[in-house]
Design a protein around this nucleic acid. Structure first.
Length: 324
DNA sequence: AATGACGGCAACCGCGTCTCC
DNA sequence: CGGAGACGCGGTTGCCGTCAT
């Protein structure tokens, strides 16, 4: 069966009828379209599913008059057209959850996606490949290596927690609510999990707390702050902050939890940082992180999207040196 | 302004599993 | 039980927009 590759850029997405390349199979039904979906196709699929429900994708494609494979229809529906699908703006809480669940389950994208309402396995997979693996590449280590996993667990995730806390502190401050202040500077978002456990969660508790207290299968999107409503709503899910990178360049002096990241001053965090396996040894983990590389980290990529900024690297080096 | 490199993401592919007959 | 089709999952591809030069 001939399969014709058709193309329509996102810019042409709403201009499908004008693109002759999009209508390459008008002569017989055997031709199957591939590539980007047009508005008409989307409309057909949505209408058909609205009237007949989903499933039986091959026959659905035929009955709906779509010159697509059943698989293509299913993918389009699940990843894009479904009413409850959420795309873009992965929140801090979602990022933390992805990291945690991936450390637990590996590339079980669909399983991970089940714990992020509205997110598809495809989006999570793409997030992982484009964001997380990028940082592994910058660190010159394999994303599946213990080195990188430890770095995620003992640096990245605590930082995410801290930024979630900062975001919520800021939100709380600006909203000027009468909520009882929390003297510990508790990360509301991360500790939203306490809604299900009844336990308070401190930043220094880190992932061990999640592991031990929440348990794998119990780690859900309840990380969401203010989770009183359904997490399917983008307004209710997570902080208004769409990306943790917004908080990457917070000056340390402005950081409400700077003591966690100043190396050695905070015994609790220092203990938390050091891998139980002792893998974070000076001169080993980041021995390749030479000045040039640090420059690359700082300027070679978009710093706002860079997990490992100079501050982080210096912090890591401090930690390594203090443990020599 | 032109162009090449790169990142993000939608979509495709192959394969394993499930379900039905 | 076995075969065929449907379904689901993870890996990969390739287009397009953006940015750097």
């Amino acid at each position: 069966m001939e399969v014709k590759r058709t193309r329509s850029s996102s810019a042409n997405y709403s201009n499908t009828s004008s693109s002759s390349t999009l209508q390459t199979c008008t002569d017989e039904d055997m031709d199957l379209r591939r590539g980007p979906w047009t508005v008409e196709e989307d409309f057909k699929l949505i209408n058909y599913i609205a009237n007949h429900g989903e499933g039986r994708w091959n026959s659905l494609a035929r009955c709906a008059g779509l010159k697509r494979t059943g698989k293509s229809c299913r993918l389009r529906w699940l990843n894009y057209l479904r009413p409850d699908v959420r795309r873009g703006n992965i929140t801090l809480e979602e990022q933390l959850l992805i990291l945690e669940l991936h450390s637990r389950w590996g590339n079980r994208w669909s399983k991970i996606a089940q714990h992020l309402p509205g997110r598809t396995d495809n989006e999570i997979k793409n997030y992982w490949r484009t964001r997380v693996q990028k940082h592994a590449k910058l660190l010159k280590c394999d994303v599946n290596s213990k080195q990188f996993k430890d770095t995620m667990r003992y640096l990245w995730m605590p930082r995410l927690m801290e930024r979630i806390q900062a975001a919520n502190n800021a939100t709380t401050t600006t909203s000027a609510t009468t909520t009882t202040s929390n003297s510990t500077g508790l990360a509301t978002a991360t500790v939203a999990a306490t809604a299900t456990t009844g336990h308070m969660m401190m930043p220094h508790m880190g992932l061990n707390y999640i592991n031990n207290e929440l348990g794998g299968a119990h780690v859900t999107a309840s990380y969401t702050p203010d989770n009183s409503s359904t997490a399917a709503s983008s307004e209710s899910f997570g902080t208004p902050v769409s990306d943790f990178t917004d908080y990457y360049n917070i000056p340390v002096s402005n950081n409400p939890n700077q003591e966690y990241f100043q190396g050695g001053n905070n015994q609790v965090y220092s203990e938390c940082l050091i891998s139980p396996s002792g893998y974070f040894n000076p001169g080993i983990e980041f021995q390749e992180m030479e000045p040039d590389n640090i420059q690359l980290l700082d300027g070679g990529v978009d710093a706002s999207d860079n997990l490992w900024n100079v501050e982080d690297i210096l912090f890591l080096q401090q930690q390594f040196n203090s443990n020599m």
